[in-house]
Design a protein around this nucleic acid. Structure first.
Lengths: 256, 256
DNA sequence: AATCTATGTTCCGAATAATGGAACGAAGAT
DNA sequence: ATCTTCGTTCCATTATTCGGAACATAGATT
């Protein structure tokens, strides 16, 4: 990763602004990004031409409909979603909690599929959301990463608190990860969002590498200790079922 | 649109390749794009860093999970989807055909929401798909565009056949558009896909501009003439309901 | 009505970053 | 053991991006 197109990468900074802001004017972006106005202006023209940004009548920009197209393509091509969905629904019906499918993307985790408990209209608010690998249900992926990769991540990452329960001590986190590997699941309480708990298990691909995480999540008070044995068994079992459909065989599991 | 970041816009050519190809190697892209290998290589590095492309173990690239995030953001922020969905479901239950919500994006149309007849698992294959404005159900948007804009489009666009019924004669298309405006709906048969028909009506925003299109679509043989009066009334009525919820008032309608 | 202010757009010389042919390296295939 | 094929690095050339400054336009303020 030596040769880069600086301009290209910089334009990402502009697009990132739209994760937290639904609409922005040129000047907004100049202020938020700190780049010179001319440069921002030039990039906007290009991003608009690419269809990544759309300009409204009032001069405000927002994310373009192209993302709908690409987003749909990505979703369609993620085989694991199709494989996991029925199993996730079954698990949801069984335990009565929301079920999430999480994948690693770079140094972060991303929620790739979700089935909710109250199914009003579908409002998959959590799909596409990112979270750090060290906190919450996504930690299960970190736990089962190859030693070297995991250690590198721990070295390079600062543990910023997200909720009251976020683990900010690296050694404590290491111990928890170790325990998660032994148990085959991990539990988190108020790590990403207060009063919310989650229990997660790893999903492996045919090569025996962690490929994703499966979690049940809900209000803290529904995840008391007495329920954990039952929950953990069911989540682990569902995760294993998905793993198997992805071609994993128990024997290919990475030894602890 | 004078000053552009050439590199940025060119990188879009690479991303576009992934609309038709789920995975590509560097060399594949060199061949398909016709750009020099070094340039493609550099852009790939940047697109990967941006999260728009992901590199697999075997050196193949595919669209990155970032698109899932941005796609979801766009979908969530499109208020019309939330407004339209219940009305679309009602219409689907009433007429027993798939219902589509279509928006204009640049010189194309894009399917923004869909409710299907056979609801197995959801498989929103059509969401995010693009089609030309001159053919199929999306033509209803073209029909209600301001005269000047519509004429400019017609001047600049070549009518390429997509199905047996695609209209390739501009004057014939003009007449159909005129009729659609008078009728308040349009019908298309085998224009985008053979043996598939659709009936579409316009959705207007608070300013009285076409904002989207609503269509029912299905196999040709279920859209015979005797059914059109009933269908057209129902689709137009549903579209008007959505328009009204978007702040449109019948009085603000653009005069024919 | 006149002035200010905020925001978007254009200009242009200087500085930098992108370019792309060529050579290299590493696998896989023959 | 020798070919291919594909990804990666090198580097001098040149086109592109850069960004301050000036301009344009529209709303707000006096």
């Amino acid at each position: 990763m030596q040769n880069k197109n600086k301009t290209l990468v910089k334009s990402m900074d502009l697009l990132q602004l739209f994760i937290t802001h639904p609409a922005l004017s040129l000047n907004d972006m100049v202020k938020l990004s700190g780049m010179p106005k001319t440069s921002v202006h030039r990039m906007l023209m290009s991003l608009e031409e690419m269809g990544f940004l759309a300009r409204h009548e009032d001069g405000q920009y927002s994310l373009g409909l192209s993302f709908l197209q690409f987003g749909q393509l990505v979703a369609d091509r993620l085989d694991i979603r199709q494989v996991a969905l029925p199993i996730m629904q079954e698990l949801r019906d069984d335990v009565g909690e929301a079920v999430n499918l999480i994948m690693k993307d770079g140094r972060e985790a991303i929620y790739v599929e979700k089935v909710d408990t109250n199914h009003p209209v579908r409002l998959y608010t959590k799909i596409g959301r990112r979270s750090p690998l060290y906190a919450g249900d996504s930690r299960i992926i970190l736990a089962f990463l190859p030693d070297q990769e995991r250690e590198q991540y721990l070295r390079e990452t600062e543990l910023t608190p997200r909720g009251l329960g976020t683990i900010t001590d690296k050694d404590k986190l290491r111990r928890i990860l170790q325990k998660s590997r032994e148990d085959g699941y991990t539990i988190s309480r108020s790590e990403l969002e207060n009063d919310t708990a989650a229990l997660a298990a790893p999903i492996f691909d045919h090569r025996g590498r962690v490929y994703a995480g499966l979690s049940v999540a809900g209000p803290d008070d529904r995840f008391q200790d007495e329920r954990l044995p039952e929950l953990s068994v069911k989540v682990v079992r569902a995760a294993e079922e998905i793993s198997r459909k992805l071609g994993w065989e128990p024997s290919s599991r990475i030894p602890l």
